[in-house]
Amino acid sequence: MSEFWSDYTVRVVFAGSAMVGAVSGALGCFAYLRRQSLVGDVVAHSSLLGIVLAFWSVYLVTGAGDKSLYVLIPGAVAAGLASLLLTRLVTRNSRIKEDAGLGVMLAVFFGTGMMLLRWLQRAQPPVPGRSGLDDYLFGMAAATTSKDLWMIGSLGAAAILTMLVNWSRLKVLAFDPEYAAGIGLPVRWLEVLLLSLMVVGIVIGLQIAGVVLMISLLVAPAASARQWTSRLGRMVTLASVLGAACASGGALISATSRNLPTGPAIVVLVTLTFVVSILFAPNRGLLFRRRHLAD
């Protein structure tokens, strides 16, 4: 066992997934409270197209495939934001409602990404470095390199720091945006900021949790944490801890069992956490409420 822990790869994987879970857990609280979970899922799914296109363009330019996060994350960000911008464009200029627009955009971006991914994998002659790209569907924490770790760490730290600096403003924005505008806060700008933070929280986790299941790491820790506390600060802290625990736990499960993608392992853990929270949390837990009613 000690041999297992001293293994460099294991430590990189463990640290990377813990960081991802901590960041997405914290930022997910704002998505949860602003009822933007679906927006987060659209960003996550849509980023597949960006990942594939980024990989492909680098191959076309350099002649070699590069799967490092330095290449793929900018692509993921661009595709995620593009899908949200297109949704806004469509819902502004037609009678289509936001949820329908988001649903359609998710399907279009993810579907196109999926098609290009399969095409890329079957292309002859084979594109060098293409194997492992489909790990982005369900996540493969074991593929994390120390170079990726730096990318995850610096982006995650920047996002958390930005959140803390703007804490009061983000709090009033999430609670009462109209009031925030009334007291002269730059609401438009803050909304873009919060959305960007959420996008960062999502894209740094794609390699570990995968585009399909990343949303669980964003929303489930927040929903679980809300059960245990009624203070925003504690909720964000607890969601961060739960996220880190579930993500690193999932990464270890996946790393120690052959070919098990990390995303599903994480989902199992966050689901367990969520079920326990929804049943047993004091005050808000279902069992507590049942007992309360019986008294």
Binding site: L33, K171, A174, F175, D176, E178, R226, T229, S230, R231, L232, M235
Partner: peptide
């Protein structure tokens, strides 16, 4: 009714 009273603040 303009705000969510379940929001986690005091």
């Amino acid at each position: 009714n303009a705000v969510d009273w379940d929001f986690p603040i005091t």
